[in-house]
Write a protein that binds this DNA or RNA. Structure first.
Length: 578
DNA sequence: GCCGTTTTCGGCCCGACTGTTTTCAGTCG
């Protein structure tokens, strides 16, 4: 996928143009284009010039630049630009508090052209005396460099959300909170999170600030003010708490939830309607009168739009959809009726079948599928064909005893590195559900990997492809799937695609979900549970599904048991020669 | 550089904070 490369180059162009002091709107155009390309599910190198120009923020010029890069592997404009500014100088912009104007000035006055030189000059006290720089600024630059050095990057949402919830619980318990909510990318359920934003209404803000900075989770207080404080947790995650007036809670929540690009779109619309939106409310520009802001809905209502759920607020077409009144009715966090990817002690899970069934029933589920590993996965104690047959019989017997929940007998079937499957069809056809997935040969060529997935989907008994891209967030890249071909065959064979809710996977990811949905593909949201509490991971999968704009009907494990069984049989019936 | 119920030029989101200033520039989200 060339998209990430193109996005990186456009961002670097924007950095260089900033240092050069170019037109800020031109710079913004590059950044917006970079962001929209990064969020694209199709590879730009497969897109025609016309298709490229349909991407918001891409006009004739940038479409041509993308094409040049996609076809030649280089971009002349970028290469020329890089000759004008030393590459280390661009890195200076990553120092918090140091922007393009300062970077340029440092280069021109002192010849500083990378972070190491900057640090040396600052330590020696040789920055002070430059225009606008005294001891304090010098100190802040050193602090910024320190922060950069121990910057921990982004954390998977599965690690961050529980921390945020624990903090909110503690604040609810210990202080006089009227309203409280997470905001930021966490509220949008992004797969990775940089910091936690919490927004609250309180009669006693200073009490909140005290309680917040004294939390057991707090390792370091970065700043503490009367309505805004920041701390760092044990895990190295920054948490910001802001207290606002009750009348402005809605507009502040919209503002701090973002995304920035989404907010900009809303404010552009507001300007055209003679309105002004900020974190304090929605105002009539002419009269200065405040029109709303208590509830988040006010913001959208006053713009004449339907409410846009946080998970959609990425400026990836949701504003246009809202204008047309076509915001989808997203799947809800309580809509799942069963988990269709669950392991037991028969392979590498921690519970026996009845225990995990009980845990699922306790969560209100109506069914679960037992999908232990097949034999090729030796390290996970994969089951032989005989063992699967035996397990399937056992499940049928247990089903007769169980009340209130049904078990599907299934398998997580390994797609071997040569593309063959672990069991013959006459075993598979006896199972209720077959979840096929890749666990080996991750580095094979695009052609090989895609070929394996395609041949698995063409098997009439393969119901679902689990974790289709194989990525592990922060650890393992996606393997090289030809997504166009993969989705085409999924559609053609009525194969269901899994959204694996395991927090380190979240696979399929949002951008592919959105595209698959447009093609009319069905999904399942599953946890890949190995121990009972992992059943609760389902919400991360739902968050991802909502980011992919899925509705309840797109997801088969929102169906009743009977509907579900009908859908599972559908593919087998399709494939049968008439 | 993009874009158009203010269409092919002339606009382009909004405010807070900080450190340096004496009215503001730079940076950030």
């Amino acid at each position: 996928m060339k998209n990430q490369e193109v996005a990186r180059i456009f961002n670097e162009i924007a950095d260089i143009l900033e240092i050069k002091g170019e037109n800020p709107f031109r710079i913004r155009a590059y950044r917006r284009a970079a962001q929209n390309i990064d969020g694209l599910s199709r590879d730009v190198k497969d897109m025609s010039e016309d298709e490229l120009r349909k991407i918001p923020g891409i006009g004739a010029d940038l479409a041509e630049k993308i094409r040049e890069y996609a076809t030649t592997g280089a971009l002349g404009f970028y290469e020329d630009l890089r000759k004008e500014v030393p590459s280390g100088l661009v890195d200076l912009l990553s120092v918090p508090g140091l922007g393009p104007r300062t970077a340029k000035m440092l280069f021109e006055k002192l010849g500083i052209k990378d972070i190491n030189e900057l640090e040396r000059y600052a330590r020696e006290g040789r920055l002070r005396g430059l225009p606008g720089i005294k001891a304090k600024t010098e100190e802040n630059i050193l602090k910024g460099i320190e922060m950069l050095k121990r910057r921990t990057g982004r954390f998977p949402i599965g690690r961050v959300l529980p921390i945020a919830e624990a903090i909110i619980d503690a604040l609810l318990k210990e202080t006089d909170v009227r309203q409280i909510s997470v905001a930021g990318s966490l509220r949008r359920w992004k797969e990775t999170i940089k910091d936690i934003d919490i927004l609250a209404v309180s009669d006693n803000p200073s009490e909140m600030m005290n309680a917040f900075t004294r939390l057991p989770q707090c390792k370091e207080v970065l700043m503490k003010g009367s309505t805004k404080s920041s701390i760092v947790t044990e895990e190295g995650i920054q948490v910001d708490l802001r207290v606002v007036e009750e009348d402005a809670f809605g507009s502040a929540l919209a503002y701090f939830t973002g995304s920035k690009a989404h907010n900009i779109r809303l404010r552009e619309m507001a300007v055209k309607k003679g309105l002004k939106i900020n974190e304090y409310g929605i105002f009539d520009v002419k009269t200065g009168r405040r029109l709303g802001g208590r509830d988040e809905e006010d913001v959208y209502r006053l713009l004449g739009l339907p409410y846009i759920p946080p998970e959609m607020r990425e400026d990836l077409g949701e504003v246009e959809m809202a204008v047309e009144g076509r915001i989808p009715d997203l799947i809800g966090y309580d809509d799942i009726r069963g988990d269709l990817h669950v392991h037991t002690r028969d392979s590498d899970g921690s519970h026996d079948i009845e225990e995990i069934a009980g845990a699922a029933k306790a969560r209100g589920y109506k069914y679960i599928a037992i999908t232990d590993h097949s034999k090729s996965l030796g390290i996970a104690r994969g089951m032989s064909a005989e063992e699967v047959v035996e397990q399937s019989k056992r499940i049928k017997a247990i089903n007769k005893r169980l009340r209130g929940i049904r078990l599907l007998s299934g398998i997580e079937l390994d797609i071997r590195s040569d593309g063959s499957l672990d069991y013959p069809d006459d075993i598979l056809k006896e199972l209720d559900i077959v979840v096929a997935s890749i666990h080996s040969g991750f580095r094979q060529s695009r052609q090989q990997i895609t070929g394996r997935l395609v041949s698995a989907m063409k098997n009439p008994y393969v119901s679902i492809i689990a974790h289709p891209t194989g990525r592990v967030i922060g650890e393992r890249e996606e393997y090289d799937v030809d997504m166009d071909e993969f989705l085409r065959v999924a559609r053609e064979t009525s194969t269901i695609l899994e959204i694996n809710a395991y927090p380190m996977r979240l696979d399929l990811r949002d951008i592919y979900i959105k595209r698959a949905k447009e093609m009319g593909i069905s999904f399942v949201i599953s946890t890949d549970t190995h121990i009972d509490y992992q059943l609760d991971f389902i919400r991360y999968g739902i968050g991802m599904a909502r980011r992919g704009w899925l509705e309840k009907g797109d997801v088969i494990n929102t169906y009743s048991y009977n509907q579900l069984m009908k859908r599972l049989k559908y593919k087998r019936a399709q494939a049968r020669p008439s």
